[in-house]
Simulated assay, not measured.
Amino acid sequence: MKDIQDIVKELENVRGTGANKIFTMYLNTDLSDPDQQSGEWKIHLKNGLNNFEHYLKEADDQEELKNFRQIKQRVKDFMGEIERDLMRGVIIIASADGEVWFAERVQMHLQNEFEWQETPVLDQLKTLSEKYPKTGIILVQQNQVKLMDTNLNQVKDTAEYELDVEEDTWKMKQGPRHGRAKQGLGASSVQKDLFNDRYEANQYRWYKSIAPKLDKQAKDREWKRIFIVGEAPASKTLETEMNKEVEEVILKNMLDHEESKVLDTVLD
């Protein structure tokens, strides 16, 4: 998925012509919503689509009706494909000629809305793009730092750094994580004590040394907001040493938590 801010800019320039109008749909599919316990989104979808079809039949505009039916079928096909893997909402903006087709599940609550007019209706999409811009979440836990690159409340990419204590430098991790390096699950109590002693003595210098790497990540990924999540003093040290402004420091150890849980904690 492209960055939502770029998508909004593109859609702002979209214009339908004649019978080839633009269909806009915002659909609440949040199964945790009390109003969705029996799959009410299916009813809203059916009614929203049928209302336009009925109106166009009454208007006796055969070309426009044909165009709308093409979009209706494509929308139904898309919803059928994602029905078993829904998020909180679905946004679809489409034209019958195929020039416009934006269809995405989003992890935010939407108000049900269906439109059929010369231009796409972007109010809800713009609100989401402003509330959930490109955001970096930095998770800190002793000798590990994980970055979550997010946009529109979804994780686009992750990166992890691990401190090589012997070489005294931070390295980008490759492949899956296998535990906690020098003080990992397989380490002896003596090794753990040695690491903890070095950690206490060097933690400020270690976090200061990784701050420029994090600033570069923030610049390259064009983060508009930055959150640091981790226990003090590590998280506070990073906040102080980074040049980029940090919106909030959340004093929780969440590096090993599911990414969806981190998003819920940080962005909701």
Rank of each mutant, 00 (worst) to 15 (best):
Q36Y: 02
E222W: 03
H178D: 15
S209C: 00
K2D: 14
T24F: 00
Q107V: 00
D60S: 14
N13E: 12
W101T: 00
Q70D: 13
R15Q: 14
E53C: 08
R84V: 05
D149G: 04
A181V: 14
Q62N: 15
Q141M: 09
N51I: 08
K182I: 15
K66R: 13
T17A: 15
F78L: 09
R221L: 09
K21Y: 00
M172Y: 10
M148F: 00
L251I: 14
R15W: 08
L122F: 03
K171E: 15
F102A: 02
A187G: 10
N196R: 01
F102I: 06
V14L: 07
K134Y: 01
E231H: 06
L255E: 01
H257Q: 14
E248V: 03
P120Y: 02
K213E: 15
E258F: 04
D256F: 09
I4H: 07
I22A: 04
T135D: 08
E248Y: 07
W170Y: 13
A96E: 05
E115S: 14
A232M: 12
E166W: 02
D3A: 07
L31R: 14
R15S: 13
K236H: 10
E58G: 06
V266N: 02
E200H: 08
N202G: 12
S209Y: 02
V155S: 06
A232S: 14
V121C: 03
H109T: 07
G48Y: 02
L152K: 00
W116P: 01
D268A: 12
P176D: 07
N243S: 14
Q144D: 11
I210D: 04
D85W: 13
P120C: 08
M254R: 08
V8E: 09
E58T: 05
K72F: 04
K146S: 13
G16T: 07
Q37T: 10
E231S: 10
Q124N: 11
F78Y: 14
K236L: 14
S188C: 04
D6Y: 08
A187K: 06
D149L: 06
Y204H: 13
L255G: 01
M1W: 10
E222D: 12
R198M: 01
G184L: 09
Q191I: 04
N196W: 11
D193M: 10
G230S: 02
G98I: 05
P176S: 08
S32G: 04
M25E: 01
G136Q: 03
D164W: 06
I43T: 13
V100L: 10
K21P: 02
L56Q: 01
D77G: 08
V190K: 10
I137L: 10
K171P: 11
L86R: 10
Q154T: 05
E231M: 13
V266W: 06
K192W: 08
Q124C: 12
V262A: 03
D30T: 04
V100W: 04
K213P: 02
D168V: 07
L65C: 10
F195H: 06
N196M: 07
V106A: 06
S189P: 04
I43N: 11
K57P: 00
E241N: 14
N67V: 02
